[in-house]
Design a binder for these strands. Structure first.
Lengths: 314, 314
DNA sequence: AGATCTTACGAACAGCGTAAGGATA
DNA sequence: TATCCTTACGCTGTTCGTAAGATCT
């Protein structure tokens, strides 16, 4: 049976452009030229006879059809890559992988998911080095590191994992929630992250709301404090969804408006080019990517690729 | 991020060879040369550094690793194709598709699944023509037809859908079931399909059992009668799993040994080459394929590519 | 002999990088 | 001007078909 499928490289390019919101950065992440990506996207759009992206100043944004397509394609790509890695000769017994990770992300997101990783890859010996080792790959101690940022670091490959989806949350029952419109939110106490004073403005912009004034509340310098403040009922906070999965599940927090925004910054897995071929790292990378995708699949997203973004948290 | 994936064409070739059990027939179904398929498979095996198939006289058989790989890859491919078709410009409003279908398959398998099809493709007007119209595509009345056979018909493209997985079933509680070994089955009354007197021999062979004698019971000339006989508690019957989904679910029948065999014959969607590009047909074909895959995913399979196979049923 | 898989060779095509062109603020 | 996307050209590697070779019954 002849299949009517686009090529895998085109789909990978599509996914990269969709998550990065830009041909240039997608090309960087794919390690190919920007012109090549442009052509792949165009070819894919011609094949499907639809527009996947809306061309804009400074980047491309997914159309509605593009979003639907991405939601089907991304998990399929992920599954193919994971299955291929799993099918390959398994890594050497006792394979080692040494990483560092930001404390909040580790506690709230990564560690809870590790049992699944060890179930698939019992031979891989994963070691968390002290976070203060940072991302100095010059010593042989650290193989990879979970960092926060926009995915561009010198001398460093970076694969997006999770954290760009930001949701507004509050303690259930304190305010009359969830609200019907973003404008109603503006009147509630809006908790701030000191390093991201524009976060609420950006959010309002991304959901196309234009309140006259924002009721700014107290500020905090870490997401963990912001989380606790929201749980205490002090107001509404903008927090990466991946850091409050447990709180949302258990009902300690509630999403107050069903729209996440896609910030430009997020948690990336970084590693030096010379470790890219390490089998244990490839396996970990593919697994991380699948975990990150699951997070994203469930949310309604308003994209905001070119906002200033939030600063490094914690 | 650079991905370590094989190419899509290689994966499609892999899937085709796996379902057909032969390079030659896979090549026919893909409409490319047999040498090309051979090379794709070899390249894929080199890429994964594992053996996907065991080369045998008259064909190739999946290795255990190959089976695991197929179970991940096939749904992913299916999803990509379905998403791509859905993303394309939707078929013209009021698109027509006229098919014929064998009565038992229609009643037991296809019709119950149609609500899902119409949900995805409300614009497509699907018409079931009388089965006696058969598969005469010379008149413009019939676009495609569900046929039973081994997938090779002259002047006709044929995509495998479902029906090759055969399971032994009986009424619960009548015998002491399920049995621990295939040999114990040989002593129970084995219901026969008159046109497939070797079915039970083949099944025993496929599961590597060698009973001294088979306790052959009454014979029937249609699967629907065989099904009713099994429900009545007359004995154990070998029936395509897709024809007794409802009976297994409701407990009217029970699978007596947890091993299906993959017969060479099954239900195929056939259509003339000049209708292959009909958008409505492509959509229907991709949807059928997904439905068929779901059936297969749940079973333990012992393959039996080169048995004589069962005759056309009903 | 008959069926099947493997391999070799040349042709066609797809994917890439470089680099020039065009649009927008 | 600066940034980003688009397009053109030529190179490279991949995929294909044809067809001959190998193997097994």
């Amino acid at each position: 049976m002849r299949r009517h499928c686009p090529s895998l490289v085109a789909l990978q390019a599509f996914e990269a452009v969709a998550t990065h919101g830009s041909l240039t950065r997608a090309a960087q992440s794919l390690h190919i030229s920007q012109g090549a990506v442009s052509k792949q996207i165009k070819q894919l759009e011609t094949f499907l006879t639809i527009e996947l992206f809306q061309r804009q100043r400074y980047g491309l944004e997914l159309t509605a059809a593009g979003q639907r397509y991405l939601q089907e394609i991304a998990p399929a790509l992920s599954r193919i890559e994971a299955a291929s890695l799993e099918a390959m000769a398994p890594p050497v017994k006792g394979g080692e992988l040494r990483i560092t990770c930001m404390p909040t992300l580790g506690a709230k997101w990564l560690i809870p998911k590790l049992p699944d990783f060890f179930q698939h890859w019992p031979e891989i010996n994963l070691t968390f080095l002290p976070h203060r080792y940072g991302y100095d790959f010059s010593t042989p101690q650290v193989d990879a590191s979970m960092r926060f940022g926009d995915g561009v670091w010198p001398d460093c490959q970076a694969d997006y994992v999770v954290g760009r989806a930001i949701v507004p949350v509050a303690k259930p029952g304190v305010f009359s929630l969830p609200v019907a419109s973003p404008e109603q939110l503006a009147a509630l106490p809006l908790l701030q992250h000191v390093s991201a004073p524009h976060a609420w403005h950006d959010w309002m912009h991304a959901v196309a709301a234009h309140p006259k004034q924002l009721n700014t509340g107290p500020s905090f310098d870490q997401f963990s404090l912001l989380t606790e403040a929201a749980i205490a009922g002090l107001g509404v906070a903008l927090i990466p969804a991946c850091l409050i999965e447990e709180e949302l599940r258990s009902g300690k927090l509630e999403q107050v408006y069903d729209m996440a925004i896609l910030d430009r910054q997020g948690y990336y897995l970084c590693y030096p080019p010379d470790r890219a071929e390490l089998p244990e790292l490839q396996v970990f990378r593919a697994w991380l990517r699948e975990q990150g995708l699951e997070n994203q699949a469930r949310m309604r997203l308003a994209s905001m690729h070119h906002s200033p973004g939030l600063p490094a948290p914690e």
